[in-house]
């Protein structure tokens, strides 16, 4: 039990980026656009944040925060590609997302080659510092984002309109909502949040960006969205579960009674749990009804 309490800061460290990214993915799907580019957008955010931080860390104490902002903006900018392709040009959303994932791997290492003359960013001296009780501020950022998303999606007219675009875009349009504009906002928000998530990840968990920095966190976030049934509290719970499982896989060596199991066992757990729950709760489809479908204005 003591072990588990001691693990809380590291669990939160791992959960936070997944949760932030998953919130973005949820908002995006709520508006009717599937964003499987979360993984790539997180990579772009992480690369940008690591680069900015290493370049200015000696000149300003606010470097970490500037880096996170830069990462968020980079995620937002790249997500414009996905938004333009899938909303304005009716592109296949899964294919466009896959393209961005491929592009992110190549693009970030390419830029690293150009800027640092190697396949990774130069390591920074000091990442983000943990706060009270060894908990990183990223946990509070994540909490704030969950509460804010919930408030906007479920307590503001704007949120109602956004959700309508994902459930029944034609009905939303006939009620006077600009469906395309709403979807743009949602995709850009998810790009921004994925950028924040990637920045948080790189600044708390490692000292530089490499191709393996994100290592599936974006895909886990994507799964957390469907496992959490597209609800803020569900997605938060799912992210917490996945993050704990990932942390367990890292820390299991410290737990005497579980040592007979290989670490791969714990690495597999979150994915198996997701699959099983997806099957168990398959009776009703919880996904926004129009998620993944391009919206075409009827008539002309």
């Amino acid at each position: 039990m003591n072990d588990l309490i001691r693990m809380i800061p590291s669990i939160l460290m791992i959960v936070s980026p997944i949760l932030i990214s998953a919130m973005g993915g949820m908002i995006c799907e709520k508006a009717g656009v599937v964003n499987i580019a979360l993984e790539g957008l997180m990579g772009i955010g992480a690369f940008t944040a690591a680069t900015v931080h290493v370049l200015i860390e000696s000149s300003t104490p606010a470097s970490v925060w500037i880096a996170i902002l830069a990462g968020a903006v980079a995620g937002l900018v790249v997500s414009i590609i996905h938004a333009y392709a899938s909303i304005s040009l009716n592109a296949n959303q899964v294919i466009s997302g896959t393209g961005i994932n491929l592009l992110a791997t190549g693009g970030t290492t390419f830029l690293a080659q150009v800027i640092f003359k190697m396949e990774r960013t130069q390591p920074f001296k000091l990442g983000m510092m943990p706060g009270l009780a060894g908990i990183y501020p990223t946990a509070w950022i994540a909490l704030a984002i969950v509460l804010l998303s919930w408030y906007i999606l479920y307590r503001r007219p704007f949120g109602l309109r956004l959700r309508a675009c994902g459930e029944h875009p034609q009905a939303a349009a006939s009620a006077g909502i600009d469906v395309r504009r709403m979807r743009y906002i949602a995709v850009l928000a998810s790009g921004f949040l994925a950028g924040v998530a990637g920045s948080c990840l790189v600044l708390t968990q490692t000292i530089q960006y490499t191709v393996n920095t994100i290592n599936g966190a974006g895909f886990i976030a994507l799964a957390a969205v469907s496992f959490g049934r597209w609800l803020p509290k569900g997605v938060a719970g799912a992210s917490l579960l996945f993050g704990t499982a990932v942390a367990l896989a890292i820390y299991m060596v410290n737990i005497e009674s579980l040592r007979f199991l290989p670490s791969e066992f714990f690495s597999i757990l979150p994915y198996i749990i997701t699959l099983v729950t997806l099957v168990l709760f398959s009776g009703r489809d919880y996904a926004p009804r129009a998620a993944g479908q391009p919206y075409e204005r009827g008539g002309s």
Binding site: A91, Q93, T98, G99, G106, T109, F110
Partner: peptide, 25 residues
């Protein structure tokens, strides 16, 4: 030549392919 340019080419090709619907428009 930074070898990552080949990955960028692959990624761009996939994104362009996803725009097939746009050609139909």
């Amino acid at each position: 030549i930074p070898k990552e340019v080949t990955w960028i080419i692959s990624g761009l090709v996939v994104i362009f392919i996803s725009l097939r619907a746009a050609f139909r428009i």
